[in-house]
Write a protein that binds this DNA or RNA. Structure first.
Lengths: 239, 239
DNA sequence: AGATTGAGCTCGCCA
DNA sequence: TGGCGAGGTCAATCT
């Protein structure tokens, strides 16, 4: 019997468990399909009744129980958990992943249909654009926000948090800027207000985002802050 | 050749693609392991260079490219996307999942090592506890918050949002309550403040949560609102 | 369809 | 290690 090889439908639960334990111990990614129940008890509690599911165990110890519709898993345990795999007395494959002593995910397979194991690659090259990239673009080109604007600080720390962008306008007034790469929300106005009140009551408050809803705009207006619309595609020069 | 059966290492890319297309068309969950590149272009852009990865395609059309450490996927497309699988002219298995016409995930497999396909269950039984359950527990037992408290409304709608719990205390004063099942954060104070200012400047504002950080407490105090500590385990009677 | 908000958020950064 | 905010947030719910 090849102990690290994938589980086949003909394998009994004991063989399946051995193969899975050996693959996990060898540092491989393990994906299991079978009939299982799932119990989570921690910051919430969840119980999934016996059903066919797939479970992924990363070498890091992260465990993911996938649903059949969403991107988001049904249950999971992050990689700071300790994950243990064993065959219990009832001949069930048990995966127990525990964090902080009172946060546990317990998966019981009564039947393993098949599995895949594979060596993860060392490291893959990844490239992406983040909110910080947007900050940098705006620092390089403050005219996207306003002509004559001078940005002097990035992530300026004040008592109640960090101001995304800080500077002064052509009249020399302090300008406090909160940047969003998505539609501005009411809580972003709260955040901006917190920074203005904390740093300088008389500063201008700018909320910079691609767009804003009417109700949020109304709330922003009630504070006499300003909304600046930006075109993300233009700034990143996409296509 | 069994067209819905799993891909084996001996299968060439044409056979692999056919098996995968047939399984997906038949409404099965498909999990593929192989060498691929990933391109995402939409609200952000990402490029993953050629590397060994696993990709999950749900019957709903949701696509998930898993990393080897985190619970969170490296790339994905939600189930409202249209997912197309085909063999292209360069003999590569291409998975193209497109949302709003300018939000696309493109996965190119140069080599498929193996795959698993399985019929998803009709429906699994799931039970869990949510923030709404906590609201209901507090409505049933307002003494967890304060003796003599009367809760009269749940999710009371005001101009700037919904008040979690609303009522009056033993002195007849209006009480506006924001409930959190996790540690209270500074933005929760903003939210509470918004509701008090919008509904009744003179109402008491209570922030109810298991605990609170010093800086948040200080900010809460500056508004003269109150923090009430609750014990989630006690309320849900866990263990 | 759009807006809002919770989430076992997860993850990363920084004090 | 804890606090805080971003996220391609996702997903549910209500309008």
């Amino acid at each position: 019997m090849e102990y690290k090889s994938d589980v086949q439908p003909k394998d009994n639960i004991r063989e399946a468990t051995n193969k899975i334990i050996n693959a996990h111990t060898a540092g491989e990614v393990v994906i299991i399909v079978g009939e299982c129940t799932v119990n989570y008890n921690g910051s919430a509690w969840t119980y999934l009744d016996l059903g066919k599911r797939s479970v992924r165990i990363n070498p890091s110890g992260a465990v993911v129980v996938s649903g059949n519709k969403s991107v988001k898993p049904k249950n999971w345990q992050t990689s700071d958990a300790k994950t243990d795999i064993k065959l219990d007395d009832d001949n069930e494959l048990v995966i127990e992943s525990v964090k902080n002593s009172d946060d546990s995910l317990l998966i019981r397979f009564t039947n393993v249909l098949k599995s895949i194991h594979y060596d993860p690659p060392e490291k893959n090259v990844e490239v992406e654009g983040t909110e910080n990239d947007l900050h940098n673009k705006l620092i390089e080109n403050p005219e996207y926000i306003e002509d004559g604007l001078n940005i002097t600080e990035h992530e300026k720390s004040v008592k109640t948090g960090d101001i995304d962008l800080f500077g002064y306008d052509e009249n020399g007034s302090d300008v406090i800027i909160e940047v969003k790469r998505r539609k501005a929300q009411i809580k972003n106005v709260d955040q901006l207000n917190r920074y203005v009140k904390t740093y300088n009551e008389n500063a201008r408050g700018l909320l910079v985002a691609p767009n804003i809803s009417d109700s949020t705009k109304e709330y922003l207006d009630s504070y006499d802050y300003e909304f600046i619309s930006i075109d993300i595609s233009e700034i990143f020069d996409k296509k």
